[in-house]
């Protein structure tokens, strides 16, 4: 049997990151975009915890930082949902292709 090393966790994080990234750039609904951002956040969490678990038992910096990420990402999601709601109120739809006000 092969051992589960650090690299397996990192590749898992990479796969989850790419799923989230592809969903981020190609979804038409703003809520989907927000969900994909959450997915990316969780992949980053996996990354940090993997490094803590495999490299350093005494310093728990990685786990502490992932706790921070969970807390702050929830605040960020809350504010993002409020912004999306305001856009919906002004424009009656939230397809990302129609929000092009800052065109150059």
């Amino acid at each position: 049997m092969f051992e589960i090393t650090l690299y397996h966790y990192l590749i898992l994080a990479l796969i989850i990151f790419s799923i989230g990234f592809i969903g981020l750039i190609s979804s038409k609904n703003m809520i989907k975009v927000l969900l994909c951002i959450e997915i990316i956040m969780s992949s980053i969490n996996i990354n940090f915890i993997a490094f803590t678990g495999f490299k350093n038992y005494m310093f728990l910096n990685g786990m502490v930082f992932s706790l921070f990420i969970i807390a702050i990402s929830s605040i960020q999601t809350a504010i993002a949902i409020v912004l999306v709601y305001l856009i919906y109120k002004n424009k009656e739809n939230i397809t990302s292709e129609e929000i092009e006000e800052l065109k150059g």
Binding site: S26, S96, I99, E101, L102, G104
Partner: peptide
């Protein structure tokens, strides 16, 4: 060159990453 800036945030994110 100014066509890069098309107002679509997702494009910007994709370019930057």
């Amino acid at each position: 060159i100014s066509r890069i800036q098309n107002g679509n945030i997702q494009n910007y994110v994709a370019y930057s990453i």
